[in-house]
Amino acid sequence: MLSASNKRLFAAWIVLSAITAAYLWIDHSADDHGTPVASTSATVGAIVLALVKVRIIMREFMEVRHAPRLLCRLTDLWVVLMAAGMLGMYFAGKAVA
C-alpha cells in the first residue's frame, strides 16, 4: 500500500521533470536559427504546460486527490481562473499593441 503511494509520488516527479525538460524543445523550436523570436504559440504552450504541472502538484503532492470533492473542484476552478487571467491579459496586451 505504502510503496504503491510512494511509487505514485515518484511517477509524479518523473512526469513533472519530463514536462520541465520539454520546455527545452519549446525554446528550441521557437528560435529562428538561434535568434529568439516572439511566438504566441510558444507563450501559450509554456503557460498551459506550467498549469498542467500546477495541477499535477496539487493533485499528487498536495494530496488534493484524496480531499473532499469541493477542494478538488475549487483547485480545478483555480487552475482555470489562473489560465484565464494570464492568457486574457496576454491577449489583451496583444490587442492593445
Partner: peptide, 25 residues
C-alpha cells in the same frame, strides 16, 4: 501536512514563474 501544503505552493508558484520568465516568447 499544513506546512507541506505551504511548501508545495512555493514550488508551483516557481513552476509558473519559470515558464513565464524563461520560456514565454
Amino acid at each position: 501536512e499544513t506546512c507541506a501544503t505551504y511548501w508545495h505552493t512555493v514550488d508551483f508558484l516557481w513552476v509558473l514563474i519559470f515558464a513565464l520568465l524563461y520560456v514565454a516568447r
